[in-house]
Simulated scan of single mutants.
Amino acid sequence: MLLGKKRELGQRVEDIKIGENLKLTEKIEDKDLLLYLGLTNDSNPLYIQHDFALKTSFEKPVVPNIMLTGILTSAISKYIPGPGSYIVSQQLDFLKPVYHYATIDFNLEVVKVDIERNEVIVQVKGIDEQGEIVVQGKITANPPRIAED
């Protein structure tokens, strides 16, 4: 757990370069879904009930899109720009449903650095086991900045 531990700040905007990238792989497990549902009190049966999902066009439970968003924003907070960064906007398109137990490869790449505004834009993409894009878009973040006394 990170509570109580001193963490280094992530990259400053001056140190970030266009083209920096990160690739990570996430497998969606039952525990992740249950934590999300418990935390948000989201009771949409499409996310967990197989008999309900069978009656829909999805045919089986789907992963909530906000969970995929959380994986992406977590990568921004951990890696690019890293600890201390703050997400100011996100534009994401969910092109295909993600089902339980899916493994998704996420790709993040810095496409714009604005030093004056202390802002970076990270292009994001999630690809499923079939090689199809399930989520894509851009996340804008303010890299960490040390407060001036």
Rank of each mutant, 00 (worst) to 15 (best):
L39I: 06
L39P: 03
T40K: 15
N41T: 05
N41P: 00
N41R: 15
D42V: 10
D42F: 08
S43R: 05
S43C: 01
N44K: 03
N44I: 13
N44W: 11
N44D: 12
P45D: 03
P45G: 11
Y47W: 09
Y47N: 04
I48A: 04
Q49K: 00
Q49T: 13
Q49D: 15
Q49G: 04
Q49R: 00
H50W: 14
H50I: 01
H50D: 05
D51A: 15
F52N: 01
F52V: 13
F52A: 02
F52C: 01
F52G: 06
A53G: 04
L54Y: 13
K55M: 12
K55W: 07
S57M: 14
F58W: 09
E59P: 03
E59A: 12
K60N: 03
P61Y: 10
V62M: 03
N65K: 12
I66W: 08
I66N: 09
I66R: 07
L68Y: 12
T73D: 02
T73P: 06
T73M: 05
S74W: 03
S74I: 07
S74E: 15
A75F: 14
I76R: 12
S77Y: 06
S77H: 09
K78Q: 10
K78W: 11
K78D: 10
Y79V: 15
I80D: 02
I80E: 00
P81Y: 02
P81V: 09
P83M: 02
G84R: 03
S85H: 14
Y86A: 03
I87D: 00
I87S: 02
Q90H: 06
Q91F: 05
Q91N: 07
Q91K: 15
Q91S: 12
L92S: 01
D93N: 10
F94H: 02
L95C: 10
K96S: 07
P97H: 03
V98K: 14
Y99D: 01
Y99W: 07
Y99P: 07
Y101H: 13
A102M: 04
T103G: 04
T103I: 08
T103M: 10
I104G: 01
D105N: 13
F106V: 00
F106G: 00
N107I: 05
N107Y: 05
N107F: 03
N107P: 02
L108D: 00
L108W: 02
V110Q: 00
V110I: 14
V111E: 01
K112C: 13
K112W: 12
V113D: 09
V113K: 11
I115T: 09
E116D: 10
E116I: 11
V120Q: 11
V122H: 00
V122L: 06
G126C: 09
G126K: 07
G126A: 05
G126V: 11
I127C: 02
I127T: 01
D128H: 06
D128G: 11
E129D: 04
Q130W: 14
G131R: 14
E132K: 00
E132A: 04
I133V: 12
V134C: 04
V134I: 13
V134G: 00
V135G: 05
V135I: 15
Q136F: 08
Q136A: 11
G137H: 08
K138I: 06
K138A: 04
K138M: 08
K138S: 05
T140Y: 09
A141P: 14
A141I: 05
P143E: 06
P143K: 13
R145H: 08
I146G: 02
E148F: 07
E148D: 02
E148V: 08
